[in-house]
Amino acid sequence: MTTRMKEFQTLKAPLFVPFITAGDPSSEATVDLALALQNEGASALELGIPYSDPLADGPVIQRASLRALKNGMSLEKAIKLVSVMREKGLTIPVIIFTYYNLLLQLGEQKFFELAAQHDIDGLLVPDMPFEESKELQEACLQHDLSFISLAAPTTSRERLKEIGRTAQGFLYCISSLGVTGTRTSFANDLDCFLENAKASSGVPVLVGFGLSSREQMQQFEGKCDGYIMGSAIVKKIEELGPELVNMETKDKAIAAFSDFLSKVVPVKVYS
């Protein structure tokens, strides 16, 4: 585990981990957006790698993927972009969110080399369930990376125990059935699921999938250690896209993005 990830784990709840797609609307904008997220209180960043066939994603992130692919973004380029973010002052952990095929084609060895060179802290592979990920999880440990595991409301208690036991970094609890995207209601028995997740794991338990407002997060207050927000943020970036890539309007767009964030980032409870 990196020092950054260790620090992340000691942060006071609620933790906040936003997701953005690398290369949407441009590489330069991705760097600025990451820094804005850190300024507005992000505890870590999930950097999504665009893929032609994003099985676990809804329309918002699908569209972001297509835009980023048109801009020529790739797994390797996205990892290298993190060095640029670090130079400009990004200090929070960065988790690479990539579908397995992209990792397979780059090669695991090459991935670990690049991850070390460019200060990556974690890896999340949404189409790699527990059974398929044992070796990769082990390899991540050896390379000081945290392999982020997911659990769903449909995950059986026995599976959840196993997943929780080996979880690294944080445990990503999917709040509802279906793909990523904002929604108004969440799966039944979520409280019970989160309770079991917390009981089974020694790392922070974060809730994600479908969160788009502070009010929604409040439903989970005290039941988890933090939140992941993807589609709502990516949607905002989509709206601001044309302004973000225009030199003249860029600063104004980042200000608008920060303003949006200040309204959705969970309120920290300072004691």
């Binding site: 369930p129 059974e131 409301p153 449909t154 059986s156």
Partner: peptide, 19 residues
Amino acid sequence: KGRYGQFGGKFVPETIMFA
């Protein structure tokens, strides 16, 4: 594990593993 040699398997989101 649903493997034919190295091929096959279940590379899907956790949500449908139970299904």
